[in-house]
Design a protein around this nucleic acid. Sequence first.
DNA 1: AGGCCCATGTAATCTGTTACATGATTCC
DNA 2: GGAATCATGTAACAGATTACATGGGCCT
Lengths: 189, 189
Amino acid sequence: MALQHAVLATLLDHEYSGYQLAKIFDIGVANFWHALPQQLYAELGKLEQAGLIRGRRVIQHDRPNKRVYTVTELGMAELERFTAAEAKPSFFRDDLLVKVYAADRTDAVTVMAQLTERAEQAKSKIALFDDILMRLRDGRDEQEFLRHGSRVGPYLTCLLGRSLEKEYHDWCLRCAELLGTREGVRDDA
Amino acid sequence: MALQHAVLATLLDHEYSGYQLAKIFDIGVANFWHALPQQLYAELGKLEQAGLIRGRRVIQHDRPNKRVYTVTELGMAELERFTAAEAKPSFFRDDLLVKVYAADRTDAVTVMAQLTERAEQAKSKIALFDDILMRLRDGRDEQEFLRHGSRVGPYLTCLLGRSLEKEYHDWCLRCAELLGTREGVRDDA
DNA sequence: AGGCCCATGTAATCTGTTACATGATTCC
DNA sequence: GGAATCATGTAACAGATTACATGGGCCT
């Protein structure tokens, strides 16, 4: 009852096929939700059955045919109902955090390596967000765009994604450095 | 295969009962993982069966008896194995983000209200984190504690939790304000 | 007596992941 | 001919949530 609304929200701007949605919801592009292709195909089926979206077959000659979806009026109503309803508490889950939590009782060196690697990944993701933000602004000044642009929702969620990724990045480097100095201290003892 | 390690990591510092773990993993205190009591009781059963933790009955007179758990050597080995293994991609899921994404097509006023309310919640959580951090430092200077303290893992994860919560808080207020000015603009048109 | 906190679960259901399966077209 | 991308699923399993169930002790 949750991926459903993420799909509806995504289909607001564009009609997409399951395959296209799968790329959007894949790690890297999905800045506000994540799902695997199988889940999306299943969800699209359910949404169409429920009449919240409508599918349209697109014949393609250069590649396999596909089915693209748009939100129906019933779907819009459902999205509005969801918006008004109470939000479930958000959550953030991360193996690396568990590893850092235990790091001074397990293997700090391994964790350090993973932290620096993760910092790199965060860096790429920030670059990706900057890219998306620039494309959404499309030449306009940010202030101007946010005040008068016709569609700012995707931009705003992207801004949050960028901020969080930045914090995560800095934290990784700080932790890695710290665990390094502690390792050094331990060697001296 | 994931909550498991979060539980093991938590039991490193202390022996806890299912009930106590439930409070730690509940919204508010769990800064790096979330789980419901039922899940924890089930997980503790599985972990004990697998020999990764050991339970001990504690007789109490003022309140119901309980069973507290500690990590076994096998459990430590498993935690080390997990630390060395590849981490699954982290994820963050949030209804409010979906709502903001769709806000300029649904009801911006409702979303604004939820954003300001959420900002308040974030504020309390930051205060809670500050509290926990202070208790962990226990009078020591942060630099000093991080360099020479015997157990910094929990402190580090808490620092990240605080940073992310702070970014989330600021973003909520910024979004709410922005949606407000846009609403104003729309009224003028 | 009623409400709250402590303490521990079972059962049913829903959601998400892993493994498997198929087939077209394009590029090298 | 083989790999990559496009395109869509099914089936089995693992993980998480919701609903339900129970009972003692403390405080007012």
